[in-house]
Nucleic acid binder design. Structure first.
Lengths: 343, 343
DNA sequence: TGTTAGCACTCAGGGGCGTCGAGTGCTAAC
DNA sequence: GTTAGCACTCGACGCCCCTGAGTGCTAACA
């Protein structure tokens, strides 16, 4: 592929990303200074189509990039778009605003990303159960119930209402908390060793109280895991993309966005790869083979924390999405550090 | 308005709600056993149009109900639709599942409502700041920060990370908590009397600590209030309504659904009215004058807790929406009672 | 040999037009 | 008061044609 072909390909991709209309040779000749006539560009485009970088909807009516064309563009031709100062300050301001709970951070990260890219944003939060137990405390609620507050090293703070077995006093529960705190100190939540349970068992003599303790632990673990770990934003923004002009298409993608499990799988597949772009047919899941995903993983002290992603039509501003994700990444790692993850 | 006119009006409204297509005299004659010919029905429809109950898109092409027509239907002609057993068990099962945090309850209520009605559901939760202070506790996080857990009589449990002023120890914070607990006991959060602040002031001698206490209190109050009090569900379901076949309309309403403040105002306007239907042009806000809202308020021991609502096109299954809201109401009041509201 | 101009061809989109079906309104008969 | 009949209206649909944008090919040019 000689240099002129590359420049033509670049021109086609850029114009198509901008206009969402198939691009013709004449348009390129006009808008890009390639120094050759439309006819020559036509020849080049025909070659590029042969090579699989461009596609024809039908003969006549301009070219659009194929997945392979986007891939070549992303890998070699594209220059990363700088975020505008305005965008940066908007983001900076939010992150600096003040100490927040970690859930807010993820939710707002998704919002910011979708706002800037006008596409759907996904944020896969670090799993609470993958972080280390810090402490469990009880607070009295009434004579039947108390509130269990679980904190982990990642800065997760969860509260649950738990019923106290009749006969158990709040002091019993506080004693229970001390035992649990001793036994689970430093354990990763989803890998609590059997030995820890045995130790709890041996230190809590009362059978009913032990059952309650197990209940508290399992309650504390299970819920977040399934429901709130994936944060999603921008289904509204998405509608401004011409690809979603007809409602059927929108319904389709909304349906897919409801399948949280599926989304998690897709994101998890990219875990650990740094900044990565998956384009159109490169996606394993059929339903989004006309979409692209840009993912980035955020780390702290070398430890993998989670993934953030932009999901949109293949005709996406890859450069912008990538630099944005990079930027958010830093913020996110930084915030998570400030909120207390200790790695 | 004689009885036959009423039956014709009823037929038009029912058919239109079902089919979303303007209804003609012939269709009514076929599908409803009125015992008269299409011509007669035509005459009645012409009268109904004169009276303002029906509208013509243009001459020819059937009638659709006007706001006034829907109003008459809702007030007099409609029979409330029973929920199907399946729907009831689905709802019952979820509510029975187990003790939950109150936020989940509201979110899922919105989801259930939108699922059953295929329309947007709104749940205005009881304001945390309208409920009474129960207690504030601190849990140690690290040497710079601690976690404030605020509980109210309504069952709200909120946690916030707060920075401790340098020099302050965790014991200082616990002492602060005792003071605050003493002084604010029983106060409604959004109406903390000046005297309470004075009392805190006098009991906390350290200036910096007092500032920190004020910060904690204001932090605990402000956030929820603004952000999470309104739960929204069913923007996806909404798309299945033929009224939203074109994306522009969808964008319009999504934009409006983002204006949380506006939605709260609309719902608040209905506060205290029990089950209430606002149809089309009866809405004050221009943007939804082609929509209807069904609202219901839920109470406990005579005290008003909040509002739940269905928002959809005027062509809405009013009967179903109303009986559903009634049903959810009971559940909601019940759950809130179980979760600890003490009125 | 690569580049360009010219030309015939293709296709999507939009406007104009006739047809069809659903529906109305009016009138006259029952 | 009710109904049948009929002329009329209007939107939706399909058809046709035209236009504009774009291609592919060929022949001429540097």
């Amino acid at each position: 592929m000689d240099e002129r072909k590359q420049r033509v390909l670049q021109a086609v991709v850029q114009d198509y990303i901008e206009s969402a209309e198939p691009v013709g040779s004449r348009t390129i000749a006009r808008r890009h200074d390639l120094g050759v006539s439309p006819a020559t560009i036509r020849n080049e485009m025909a070659d590029l189509e042969m090579l699989g970088y461009l596609e024809h909807i039908h003969t006549s009516s301009g070219r659009i990039p194929s997945s392979k064309g986007y891939r070549f563009y992303v890998d070699g031709l594209m220059q990363p778009t700088q975020l505008s100062d305005e965008e940066k300050t908007q983001i900076d301001r939010w992150y600096r605003a003040r100490v927040k709970r970690i859930e807010e951070v993820f939710q707002e990260t998704a919002r910011l990303i979708s706002h800037v890219t006008k596409n759907v944003a996904l944020v896969l939060a670090p799993q609470m159960t993958k972080s280390a137990f810090r402490c469990l405390q009880f607070l009295p609620l009434d004579d039947r119930r108390s509130v269990a507050v679980l904190m982990t090293d990642a800065g997760f703070i969860e509260n649950r209402i738990v019923a106290m077995p009749s006969g158990a006093s709040f002091e019993d529960f506080q004693r229970m908390a001390r035992v649990i705190n001793d036994c689970l100190a430093g354990c990763t939540l989803d890998a609590i060793p059997k030995a820890a349970y045995r130790k709890i068992r041996s230190e809590i003599s009362d059978e009913e109280l032990y059952e309650a303790a197990l209940d508290v632990i399992s309650r504390a673990l299970d819920d977040r895991e399934g429901r709130d770990r994936l944060y999603l934003g921008g289904t509204r923004e998405m509608l401004s993309q011409p690809e979603f002009r007809d409602v059927e298409r929108v319904k389709e993608i909304l349906l897919m966005l409801e399948e949280e499990q599926l989304l998690k799988e897709i994101l998890s597949a990219h875990l650990g790869d740094g900044l990565r772009v998956t384009i159109g047919q490169e996606n394993d899941y059929k339903g989004i083979q006309d979409c692209s995903i840009v993912t980035a993983t955020y780390h702290l002290d070398g430890e993998l924390l989670g993934t953030i992603a932009v999901l949109g039509p293949t005709r996406m501003e890859y450069g912008k999405a990538m630099s944005l994700l990079g930027y958010m990444n830093e913020h996110l790692s930084d915030v998570v550090r400030r909120l207390g993850w200790q790695g």
